[in-house]
């Protein structure tokens, strides 16, 4: 089994050798390591992408907006990912971001996962009718089986989720009430002595 350290070092070098700058290579290496640690096909997809780059050209999208023009050539997931990461502060203000024709979206996802941690919001993605949730870079939840991660995303929709509870107030109250069963009802003497301070602070 390859260690994550080996994966990161090799991906960094391979990315640089594929024509990216060292700084971008460092970012890509972190992302592929992340995918592998989540059990997603990072090495497989970056390998395929670099192989395809030798034959085909890809489009760089440096400035991301709400609706991005469809490109005849697929978007490079690395440049797209780095741009997304760098622009995350302004992008999170947008309600929804739409992209078409993105090569190896799994690679792009890793950048979005890191973005989720940086901005402190979950990110929900619709990828050609499949759903993916990025949870603060702690995990990636999706209903896509690993081997089915596509090499092209025809349509990608990115939503920043509000920091709201995923449960009802009623469910919370029920649970809280149960937790109260670990508390002790205070008698007068406990009120006096239990906290070590007086009942008034008018000094």
């Amino acid at each position: 089994m390859k260690s994550f350290s080996e994966i990161e070092t090799t991906v960094k070098r391979a990315t640089k050798a594929s024509g990216y700058s060292w700084g971008v290579a460092e970012e890509t290496a972190k992302c592929v390591r992340l995918l592998e640690s989540f059990g997603l096909p990072g090495i497989k997809h970056i390998n395929n992408y670099f192989s395809e780059r030798k034959e085909n050209s890809f489009q760089n999208l440096n400035l991301i907006s709400e609706r991005n023009p469809p490109s005849a050539k697929p978007y490079c997931p690395i440049i797209l990912g780095v741009s997304f990461l760098d622009q995350s502060n302004s992008l999170e203000l947008l309600k929804k971001i739409e992209l078409n024709n993105v090569a190896y979206p799994s690679i792009f996802l890793a950048f979005l996962s890191r973005t989720s941690e940086i901005i402190g919001k979950k990110i929900q993605i619709n990828l050609d009718k499949k759903e993916i949730i990025l949870n603060f870079n702690l995990n990636i939840y999706s209903n896509i089986a690993n081997n089915d991660f596509p090499s092209i995303a025809n349509h990608l929709e990115i939503n920043f989720l509000k920091n709201i509870d995923s449960f009802s107030e009623e469910e919370w109250k029920n649970l809280y009430k149960l937790s109260e069963d670990t508390f002790v009802e205070e008698s007068d003497s406990l009120k006096q002595g239990g906290a070590g301070a007086g009942l008034t602070d008018n000094d």
Binding site: Y20, S21, W22, G23, V24, E26, N62, V82, S83, D86
Partner: peptide, 10 residues
Amino acid sequence: LIKNSELRHV
């Protein structure tokens, strides 16, 4: 960084 990607590492 859009125009100066080669300096990202520094």
